[in-house]
């Protein structure tokens, strides 16, 4: 209990004093996770929607695979990305290992199936509702996908937020491909792991509270910007 209280105090102190290290790793956490979210959303939202409206031979298998990939172990993803980006790997020449870019790649792989799967579920229901109208209006496949994405944007926001939640709290993969290098690839989660390993539970907890506050703040900000609650009953 004392450690939790000490953690709250540490978090308060870090925030009030605008601790330089905290600001740096918080910004890096945001940079990595939001970048991964944008890239993953660009892939997953159209793909999930396409999967909802398109009928093809291996559709069921594709959906089952996508759902299974939601549970990808981050450590395994980290290991595979590490091997691909290491000097002896096929992409080693790019020199991306132990950089924020490598962390973004790992997070994209982890959250894309999650966002695509939630998108597919949501878009399947909307497509059932819109199907006859959009077919009757002679819409192209692209027009159908864009219409569904636009009209289902609030549900898709939930999918994106789920992806962000997974990305910002992820530690296994980014620890492997980022290396937790001070002033280079250290983010909130890897810093928490480091401080816990050092036995500085108060600081680790403090960083943990900052992480939770950050996740909540981003969620509230996106909800406010998209006016989800005000028009959510459409």
């Amino acid at each position: 209990m004392n450690e939790i209280w000490a953690g709250i105090q540490a978090a308060f102190r870090l925030i009030v004093t605008l601790d330089a290290d905290l600001v740096e790793i918080t910004l890096r956490s945001l940079q990595v996770s939001l970048s991964a979210l944008v890239v993953a959303s660009v892939i997953a939202l159209p793909f999930g929607t396409w999967l909802a409206i398109r009928r093809f031979r291996y559709r069921r298998a594709t959906i089952a695979t996508l759902n299974a990939l939601m549970g990808l172990p981050p450590v395994v993803v980290g290991l595979i990305v590490y091997l691909l980006l290491s000097r002896s790997g096929p992409f080693g020449v790019l020199g991306l290992l132990f950089t924020p870019t490598a962390m973004i790649i790992a997070q994209v792989i982890i959250i894309t199936p999650l966002i695509a799967s939630i998108t597919h579920q949501a878009m399947r229901e909307l497509w059932a509702e819109y199907h006859d109208l959009l077919i009757s209006l002679n819409t192209t496949k692209t027009q159908r996908i864009l219409t569904l994405i636009w009209d289902g944007r609030r549900t898709l926001l939930t999918a994106a937020l789920a992806g962000f939640g997974r990305a910002i709290g992820e530690v296994g993969a980014i620890m492997i491909v980022g290396g937790n290098i001070d002033h280079a690839t250290r983010v909130l989660t890897t810093a928490i792991a480091l401080e816990t390993g050092k036995g500085d539970f108060a600081l680790a907890l403090g960083l943990g509270f900052v992480l939770i506050a950050l996740a909540l703040l981003v969620n509230f900000a996106i909800h406010a910007l998209s006016r989800t609650e005000r028009e959510g009953t459409w």
């Binding site: 009757s136 009209d151 459409w234």
Partner: peptide
């Protein structure tokens, strides 16, 4: 392109 269709249960876009 010359046709339009109105369904028994009108389908409203969420707009």
């Amino acid at each position: 392109e010359m046709q339009a269709y109105v369904f028994q249960s009108p389908i409203m876009l969420r707009r």
